[in-house]
């Protein structure tokens, strides 16, 4: 078809939205609601991911060595660590230092550790390694575990795992809700297009007699579906952006500093809103297209 024809059809589809105001409003609200929830889920998951990667970048690997390690073996390992790629820095903590650190940590209660001396020190020698890139962590841990003098390798994976679990649960639960809402939006758009087809049946009949092709008759309705989806996406996008912005403002102004809530450092609006709005427009128009195509197939006998 010619560009001019496409323009005519897009215009026709857009006009249909206004002709059929009440149903269009219902459709746009439904799709906006579904996308808004999608936006919330997305914003949460993106923030979780951000927290996770922040933690991962700080991940320190602790390598506890076996009890009978000789000093030349420690030197050999040190040289090895110097050769390995991906290590930002490393520090050797001898068992004596470790005991000293322990005492310091316990502060006033350190007398409880008085029974421990250099001879019966239960603590092992250890290396504390910080990696350059969180992606290296797992690999590094595997490599370290293979070393003969290594007893145990620990890294603060627990927190990351917990947050990952929360993020996954949010994703799954949230997306389930989104899918349900999208199906509902589809049903409503489907119905809207059906009514639009019905209200234009005379016109469709005339078009058929004049020799309009089936697609010429169908396209305006598909355009109508797309228009509904895009309008819903725009509303949901503004809503998500507005609420997220307020949330960021609120948290920035709150007096909680340096505690656990510093984890709740939200991503700035600009860094997530383009992705979210882009996805909204995509999902909105795809939902609009699918709903209208289904409706046309069922109700538009051309």
């Amino acid at each position: 078809m010619k560009i001019r024809t496409w323009r005519l059809m897009a215009g026709q589809g857009f006009r249909n939205v206004f002709r059929n105001r009440i149903m269009s409003l219902a459709s746009i609200s439904a799709i906006a609601a579904a996308l808004f929830v999608l936006g919330l889920v997305l914003a949460m998951v993106l923030n979780f991911n951000n927290i996770i990667s922040g933690l991962e970048s700080k991940v320190e690997i602790t390598v506890f060595l076996k009890d009978n390690v000789q000093s030349h073996e420690i030197e050999a390992m040190s040289r090895q660590l110097n050769d390995w790629e991906g290590i930002k820095e490393w520090k050797f903590v001898s068992r004596d230092e470790a005991l000293e650190n322990w005492r310091e940590e316990w502060g006033e209660q350190k007398y409880l550790l008085d029974g421990y001396t250099a001879e019966n020190n239960p603590l092992p020698d250890s290396f504390h390694i910080t990696v350059e890139n969180p992606d290296y962590v797992t690999e590094m841990v595997e490599k370290l575990r293979k070393l003969t003098k290594v007893e145990v390798v620990q890294y603060s994976k627990d927190v990351v795992d917990t947050i990952t679990r929360i993020a996954n649960a949010t994703r799954i639960l949230g997306l389930a809700v989104v899918v349900i809402l999208i199906i509902m939006a589809m049903i409503i758009i489907h119905n809207t297009i059906r009514i639009s087809v019905y209200s234009r049946r005379r016109e469709i009949n005339i078009m058929k007699y004049i020799g309009a092709t089936d697609w010429y008759i169908r396209w305006p309705f598909i355009m109508e579906g797309i228009s509904l989806g895009i309008m819903g996406a725009v509303i949901a996008g503004s809503l998500t952006a507005g609420i997220y912005y307020l949330l960021v403002q609120q948290l920035a102004e709150s007096p909680m500093e340096g505690n656990i809530l510093s984890l709740l450092q939200l991503l700035p609006l600009e860094s997530i809103i383009y992705q979210i709005v882009g996805l909204f427009l995509l999902v909105g128009s795809v939902v609009g297209v699918i709903a209208s195509v289904l409706s046309i197939r069922k109700h538009l006998r051309v």
Binding site: E203, I206, I210
Partner: peptide, 20 residues
Amino acid sequence: KEIPFYRRGIGVVFQDFRLL
């Protein structure tokens, strides 16, 4: 699929005019 093109060769008018 070809029916619309066939119909373009035939003009038709009705009792009720059928205008938009």
